[in-house]
Amino acid sequence: MILQMNGIKKSFGDLEVLKDISMHVDSGEVVSVIGPSGSGKSTLLRCATFLETIDAGDISYMGRSAVTTNANGVATYVHHAELSQIKRYFGLVFQQFNLFPHYSVLKNIMDAPVHVQKRHKEEVRAEAMELLRKMNLENRADAYPCQLSGGQQQRVAIARALALKPEILFFDEPTSALDPELTGEVLKVIRQLAEEKMTMVVVTHEMPFARAVSNRVIFMDKGVIVEEGDPEQVFGDPTQERTIQFLRNYQR
């Protein structure tokens, strides 16, 4: 098991955004998270990637515990050095790409492996070029993010995350900031990663994509997991009223 989250609770002030969420991700699995706006999907990913601290619950990666909650309900994160180690297990692709604008495409991809993981530069360069080929961007290595389309930027962002060789990759609505005609090229890349058995959790509003690519679908609403299962079951034969409502609104 790559990721295990148990009883996650998270509030912003009085607003309870995650109410006792539990989920797990196995190696090679592609899990889609769907749900209405404000249901807590982004918050769930941000808690899983430690961008937000949880109020209660347990999170572990590869069997290594990152945060635990004791009997008194106090969540405690492991010390900094251990947490840094655990952070290496995952990557995150943002809705807004968040590439570094002052770095070229190649440097965006190479910089963290070289300066964070302290790996050999030439080896990293070869891998980065290989990733760019995979993203169909091998001729844009020297371009700067501002010179690329949104779809190209997002593919660079995916390559940047993959260059660190994470065990699991999270995507938060990777195509929501893109013009409709550009979503296809990004989804294609994610689909290709799924075929290579990359473990992924994808928050998305692209229902046909979620149905086609995932091994499991999680439907969230108002901070709880309402329904979870095989995509054909969740999309084709949902059991919960809220899921049916949500999917009906989507068909329009």
Binding site: L51, S84, K87, G91, Q96, N98, F100, V116
Partner: peptide, 10 residues
Amino acid sequence: GQYEAAEILG
């Protein structure tokens, strides 16, 4: 997002 990307990348 620049800070968050940097944090995620380690």
